[in-house]
């Protein structure tokens, strides 16, 4: 029953949110049998109470729940800048709901009763995706922080360099001496910990995305 053996990252957990106790318990047992770490919640509110942005893993959500529906939780998570992938589970092949869920970035939309092998496969994929997203997210956060240390003038030089302009052109555009451009340029390279021009260009592109 092992589908693929993508290693699950340390700290990663599956957050199961379903108001039906039997479904919750059965899913918990299923993940136990697959040795996938997980934690169960009976409502979206209960989950949000424990959520502080540091959790890692993915969400398995029943789309229809009292109090807060799966879709509403998805919105809330998106507003919180969460990158946790969401797998929706529904008892009905509710097409408009599915469309909306996918538009807001749901990983998948599964119908009850679920084919377990597919669920496990999707959970593993989601966890993998989350790893990528998390590392991209932390890289981006680091980059933003580095860019944040640049002075206004340094930032202007950074942008010009990233666009491939020579020092002479930059000096002309910014109305400063070529020598001054060189000083700012070396400061930028140092602050961004870039070893060459190619890295500066990539960082600029990433910061724009």
């Amino acid at each position: 029953m092992k589908i693929n053996n993508i290693p699950i990252q340390h700290q990663q957990k599956v957050f199961i949110i379903d108001d039906d106790i039997a479904v919750r318990d059965a899913m918990s047992m299923l993940l136990d049998s697959e040795d996938i770490p997980h934690i169960c919640f009976k409502s979206a509110h209960d989950f949000l109470k424990t959520h502080d942005g540091t959790q890692s893993g993915c969400l398995v959500l029943d789309i229809r729940m009292p109090d807060m529906t799966g879709l509403e939780l998805q919105q809330t998570m998106s507003n919180l800048d969460s990158v946790l992938p969401i797998i929706f589970i529904t008892g009905h092949g509710d097409i408009p709901m599915a469309v909306e869920a996918m538009r807001y970035g749901a990983v998948d939309f599964l119908r009850k009763p679920i084919k377990e092998s597919i669920l496990i496969e999707r959970i593993r994929e989601a966890l993998e995706t989350e790893t990528t997203l998390q590392s991209r997210k932390s890289r981006r956060e680091k980059l933003d922080a580095q860019i944040g240390t640049l002075t206004d003038r340094e930032f202007q030089v950074f942008e010009q360099v990233a666009q491939g302009h020579a020092n002479k052109t930059i000096a002309l555009v910014l109305g400063i001496s070529e020598r001054t451009v060189e000083v700012h340029r070396s400061q930028v390279m140092k602050k961004l910990q870039a070893r060459n021009l190619a890295q500066v260009v990539r960082m600029h592109m990433e910061s724009q995305s």
Binding site: M1, D20, A22, V23, D25, A26, M27, M29, L30, D32, S33, E34, R64, G91, H92, K112, P113, I114, E116, S117
Partner: peptide, 21 residues
């Protein structure tokens, strides 16, 4: 349909868990 799907979902999952164990 929703109400009946709940136990069916659980049944199927328990069966698969059992096989897994």
């Amino acid at each position: 349909a929703h109400e009946i799907n709940q136990p069916l979902t659980a049944i199927s999952m328990y069966a698969n868990s059992g096989l897994g164990f």
